[in-house]
Write a protein that binds this DNA or RNA. Sequence first.
DNA 1: CTGAAAGCGCTAACAT
DNA 2: ATGTTAGCGCTTTCAG
Lengths: 347, 347
Amino acid sequence: MSVTIKDVAKCAGTSVSTVSKVINGYYGISEATVERVHKAMKDLRYYPNASAQNFATRSTKTVAVLANLSADIAFKNPHMFEIISGLEESLSAKGYRMVLQSVEESNVYEKTEELISRKSVDALAIHVSVITHPLSSLLTRSQFPHIVLGCPSFESQVCWIDNNNVYSGTIAASYLLSMGYEKIAFIGGQYYDLGSTNRLQGVKQALNERNCKLEDGYIWLGESTRDDGYRMAKQMLEAQTKPDAIICANNTIAWGCLSALRDMGYSVPDDIGVLTFDDYPLSQFMEPPLTIVDINVRDLGVQAGKSLLRILRHQNTQIQTFVTISNLVERSSTKNKKTGMRQNYRH
Amino acid sequence: MSVTIKDVAKCAGTSVSTVSKVINGYYGISEATVERVHKAMKDLRYYPNASAQNFATRSTKTVAVLANLSADIAFKNPHMFEIISGLEESLSAKGYRMVLQSVEESNVYEKTEELISRKSVDALAIHVSVITHPLSSLLTRSQFPHIVLGCPSFESQVCWIDNNNVYSGTIAASYLLSMGYEKIAFIGGQYYDLGSTNRLQGVKQALNERNCKLEDGYIWLGESTRDDGYRMAKQMLEAQTKPDAIICANNTIAWGCLSALRDMGYSVPDDIGVLTFDDYPLSQFMEPPLTIVDINVRDLGVQAGKSLLRILRHQNTQIQTFVTISNLVERSSTKNKKTGMRQNYRH
DNA sequence: CTGAAAGCGCTAACAT
DNA sequence: ATGTTAGCGCTTTCAG
């Protein structure tokens, strides 16, 4: 029925092994035969059968992405798909395919075991939200090439990648200091909100390095909701002398914070500067457009893919952690306090 | 190295073909041997090699999803990923895998040709945004199992699936009529905005069937931007006698419309009811929560997967078009004009 | 530089 | 009900 390597060999007047060698770019074949074979392939419209190649090479050139694709996931967590898109980018650049498979905490272990045992894929990329303890030990025990997308919340030996929230915090604080802000406040999530906590830590670090300090009255921690962001901003402003800038640990809190400032009659950035992390989901809705530390989600995926490829290339190397860094995007919710200059561009 | 079907056969004291038969659920094997084989598989922790199965059966049990995964795509178009998640749901339910591959208009033809020729996958699901004319004819010429996610903007013989926007329009209008609204207005996108145009058509249909009519002055078409939504709503209210409800063709326009109503001092729903389509991206930000016609994006993906499986099962059947329907979600931007009752639940 | 041939692990006639 | 065996299409020694 369809044209095989035999047909090409016959047509080119060589053996199948020679054809195979030119397909796979071996050196050690004369220019002349390489050309004859290429011509034959072209004439016959030959494409190597992927399944046969996989079978013969005992490799699939595909990696499985495991995540919980429950209802409305794309609306609730677009970040995850942006990461996945980044992954696809670096994987496909090296000829790897990506299969996307939905799992839950309850079945991720057996699904993973099956993927590994059946040799269905060459590697795994697993979203941190479905990582369980048994899965983590399966991963390290089997030594199967893998990367976890996001930092696991428990101690483990798995290989993971995440963005560096501490670093993002230092970027935020350094930027504000460089713009002439001096009384900086932070409102964020509770201690168990790792992202918020790490960002706060980074803020503190940066301030310390410049001999500034984050006063206790300028740190408010609560729920990551609009309402609590509102409450915290309001209570802080009622209790304390006004800070000149507020760093909000995330978008949702920033939303509440901005509402509170507006309701209290403060103008942003003239009375108070506001800065947060990550563009989504508010950047298109906020007035003024927010200065943010962009967490570069897609790049996280790209780096995850590259790390996975590196692991695939050198099975021996044992790297555990990869981290990506972020950039500041200056918009209109902050200004240069020294010069009074403000950004006018909108995103 | 790893355990194969031969090992299982040996362990169970049978032949490989018998083992193969029990793996694939053949009848015509005695209970006793089935059990022996199962025991052997379990004891040896045997999992069939996926590549070998694919090769032997000349099928991959996987479908490729082709879409443009460019930067920020997950934020700009979460709907697409929700569709893809739905697809995964119905495909994995029948043992199919889904590989996600990024393509562009410029390379989708060759990528598709390669996938088909190399028999890399059993079927294709292609997002409408990357459908080109040559691709469309490749699809019909090759008769390769496929489904296009979304209705192509040009005439073609490809098999596609989309949500029924005309129907959504009738739902919107029927609902408003049933709530006692009588002077209904529509603001939407230009004629080339197929979604908007079809929704408008549905609205007209529903009104006609009840012997109502959409007055010319109550139809405003413009750009799908917040600003233009604002402009249209405002100009309509300045020019016409006030409608009692406005149907906005999409979220963005609804956003502008609500702002205009607020600025003009109208209260929603007491002075004017507002209804739009699709929850995303405004539902969490709008005050009051909007009554919407939910377009059920995930279900579109689920149905796409089921259709694809049907096509895979009966290569002969030639179905071209599938359509999914939508539901109304009643919230606080409309009320029952007859009873004065309003919904209080928030989404 | 080229070719013959032995797999890769499983399925599916076909024979028993 | 079970076993024998010939592929599936390609890669990869190994010999020439």
